Simulated scan of single mutants.
Amino acid sequence: MPKRRLYLNDEEYQYATLCLNGMRNDYLAADRSCGGIDRLLLKLVRASYRSIVSR
């Protein structure tokens, strides 16, 4: 596997997206800055390597 790549199956990808979005919502509700979470969430959504073939 190449360095700095994260390979997720569909369930892990969905869980990571939901968790980051939930954390973002909590930050917004607490009136805190969520810029770092936004950048990470965008990287995850735009990733071209998001699923793997099961062996």
Rank of each mutant, 00 (worst) to 15 (best):
E11D: 13
V45W: 04
V53D: 10
R55G: 11
T17M: 06
L18S: 15
Y15V: 08
L44W: 01
R32T: 00
Y7P: 02
C19Y: 11
N21V: 10
D31L: 08
R46W: 06
V45Y: 02
G22Q: 10
R39W: 09
R5P: 01
K43R: 13
L40E: 04
K3L: 11
S48I: 08
E11I: 05
S33W: 04
Y27F: 12
R4P: 00
L41M: 12
A30S: 14
L8F: 06
I37P: 02
V45I: 11
N21K: 15
R50I: 00
L6A: 09
R5V: 15
R46F: 10
R55I: 12
L18K: 15
N9T: 02
S48L: 12
S51M: 12
S51R: 13
R24Q: 15
L42P: 03
K3I: 04
I37R: 04
L28F: 09
A47K: 07
L44S: 00
L41Q: 07
L18I: 14
N9H: 03
G22E: 06
C34P: 06
G22D: 12
N9V: 00
D10Y: 13
K43P: 01
R4I: 00
V53R: 07
A30F: 07
L42I: 05
G36F: 10
C19R: 14
L8E: 03
I37F: 04
N21L: 13
A47N: 15
R39P: 02
A29P: 03
I37E: 02
Q14I: 08
L20F: 12
Y15P: 00
L20V: 04
N21H: 14
R50M: 01
G35E: 07
V45F: 01
G35Y: 04
R46T: 10
C34M: 08
R32L: 07
S54V: 06
Y13P: 00
D31S: 08
I37K: 02
L20R: 02
V45K: 13
S51W: 10
L8Q: 03
V53Y: 05
C34H: 15
K3P: 03
I52V: 15
L8I: 02
A16T: 09
L18G: 08
Y27M: 08
Y49E: 15
L40G: 03
L6V: 12
A16F: 05
I52Q: 06
S48W: 03
A47R: 09
E12A: 13
L18F: 14
Y49S: 14
S48H: 14
L28Y: 11
V45T: 05
M23P: 00
I37D: 01
E11V: 07
A30Q: 13
V45C: 01
L44R: 02
A16I: 05
R55V: 11
S51Y: 08
A29R: 15
L6N: 06
T17F: 06
N25A: 14
P2S: 09
S33K: 11
Y13D: 00
N25D: 14
R50V: 01
L8Y: 01
D31P: 00
R4C: 08
I37S: 03
A29M: 13
L6K: 10
C34G: 10
N21F: 11
K43A: 12
Q14W: 07
S48M: 08
Y27Q: 11
D31A: 09
G35T: 06
L40R: 04
Y27V: 05
E11N: 04
C34K: 05
L6H: 06
K3W: 03
M23D: 03
N9S: 03
L40A: 12
E11L: 05
Q14Y: 11
